[in-house]
């Protein structure tokens, strides 16, 4: 659980988060502190313990596969930063 290799710029890239150099430096110190603290979890014997992903043991909740009302097209696009011809506008992906 060593965190000497904490590479903020790499993590920011994975998270698609542009950081200023000042932000990256501040985060580095603060996260190193938090990660040192959570080292506490190493003290706990978790042998044979099943990980808990969820607060209630419910699985495979399904509903009938049928058409139901949904947002009208125009409403779904209303909060889009850029749209045209009933579609979201994105930067060019393929040359």
């Amino acid at each position: 659980m060593a965190h000497t290799d904490l590479d903020i710029n790499y993590l920011a890239h994975l998270a698609r988060l542009a950081l200023t150099p000042e932000e990256a430096a501040a985060l580095n110190g603060q996260l190193a502190g938090v990660l040192s603290y959570v080292e506490k979890l190493k003290e706990v014997d978790v042998t044979g313990v099943e990980p808990m992903a969820h607060a209630q043991p419910r699985v495979n909740v399904s509903r009938p596969d049928e058409v139901r009302p949904s947002l009208p097209h125009s409403e779904a696009l209303r909060n889009a930063p850029a749209s045209a011809n009933g579609l979201f506008v994105v930067p060019k992906i393929v040359e």
Binding site: I8, L11, L17, L27, L31, V34, K42, V44, E50, P51
Partner: peptide
């Protein structure tokens, strides 16, 4: 977001996220 990305990232997932989920069960 950066902390969450770290604890879920390859090589650290078991040591942080999976262990935390086991402690949550306890």
């Amino acid at each position: 977001i950066v902390l969450g990305t770290y604890v879920l990232s390859s090589g650290y997932y078991d040591a942080y996220y999976l262990r935390a989920q086991k402690v949550r069960a306890l």
